[in-house]
């Protein structure tokens, strides 16, 4: 089922100032329920501009965005409603925390959606349970938490709105491996619980190979590829041309292939790499 559809989206920055911009031209793609889509592209390729259209923070210069089959700009006065359907978590979201308690901060989003009373309390508590924020944290100030915990609470603030599509701009930037793992886990848990579509902007091809069903590759404001992660990573030469790359393990396998070892081209994760090499070894022994 198509949840989100972008048609011919173009955004040129107004003002015509000679200053930097991050325009987008003629991008079309659609996302199915429950899918994980990775967005890759180097800095300035239009990724951030693109995702800010998905929840109506930016209005397309041309083209349309459909959520659940409805053009989100049909009724511009109601644009705020779309933000509970498409959640957007910015880079370093902990910088948006402002309330006195963790509870109040997580409640900010649902409250803006008009949810109140017991329903609001339930929303907040459910979200906390889902992402593993302990009850004793709820009355703490969010500013007393550690870096990784702040990030989780900030993400919870968006998840509490229960969006059916949730977009993350480099959700693990600046975290250490333990912090990264816990953020990836809550994204996974949320998707499981709500059946949401997840869109992630990332610089890590290794993470994308592990996570994404589909990859959307941006280059100079245009959609370069939109395909399964496997098909995208098979086009390693093109990715390199536009300043991107394939996962490191894939690069190792290019070398193996060049040395005459009969490895396939579609090895993108360590797990698969080990299986492939084991297979070859077993085959040799059998022969």
């Amino acid at each position: 089922m198509t949840v989100l559809e972008v048609k011919n989206l173009t955004h040129t920055y107004s003002g015509n100032t000679p200053f930097i911009n991050d325009a987008v031209s003629r991008v079309s793609f659609s996302a199915q329920k429950g899918e994980i889509i990775g967005i890759i592209g180097h800095t300035g390729s239009g990724k951030s501009t693109l995702v800010q259209h998905l929840n109506g923070l930016l209005k397309p210069t041309e083209g349309e965005v459909f959520v659940d089959g409805e053009n989100i700009w049909d009724n511009p006065k109601e644009i705020r409603k779309i933000r509970s359907k498409v959640g957007l978590v910015f880079q370093y979201p902990e910088y948006q925390l402002f309330e006195e308690t963790v509870y109040a901060d997580i409640a900010f989003g649902p409250k803006n959606m008009g949810i109140a009373g017991d329903e609001l309390k339930k929303r907040v508590l459910d979200t906390c349970r889902l992402i593993g924020v302990k009850d004793e944290y709820l009355e703490k100030s969010p500013f007393d938490l550690s870096g990784g915990e702040k990030r989780r609470v900030a993400i919870a603030g968006v998840m509490a709105m229960k969006p059916e599509v949730i977009v993350f701009d480099e959700p693990t930037a600046g975290l250490d491996p333990a912090g990264r793992e816990s953020v990836m886990k809550i994204i996974h848990d949320y998707r499981q619980a709500v059946g949401a579509t997840v869109i992630i902007i990332s610089h890590s091809m290794e993470d994308m190979a592990l996570l994404a069903d589909k990859l959307l590759v941006m280059n100079k404001g245009s959609l370069e590829m939109f395909d399964t992660a496997e098909n995208v990573f098979l086009k390693g030469d093109r990715l390199r041309e536009i300043g991107l790359n394939v996962p490191i393990v894939t690069r190792v396998f290019y070398e193996l292939k060049a040395a005459g070892i009969p490895v396939p081209d579609n090895v993108f994760t360590v797990k698969r790499a080990v299986e492939v090499l084991k297979g070859i070894k077993a085959g040799e022994r059998g022969a």
Partner: peptide, 10 residues
């Protein structure tokens, strides 16, 4: 809690 490059991991 350190990041290990994918080559080392492999």
């Amino acid at each position: 809690g350190l990041d290990v490059p994918q080559t080392a991991e492999l």
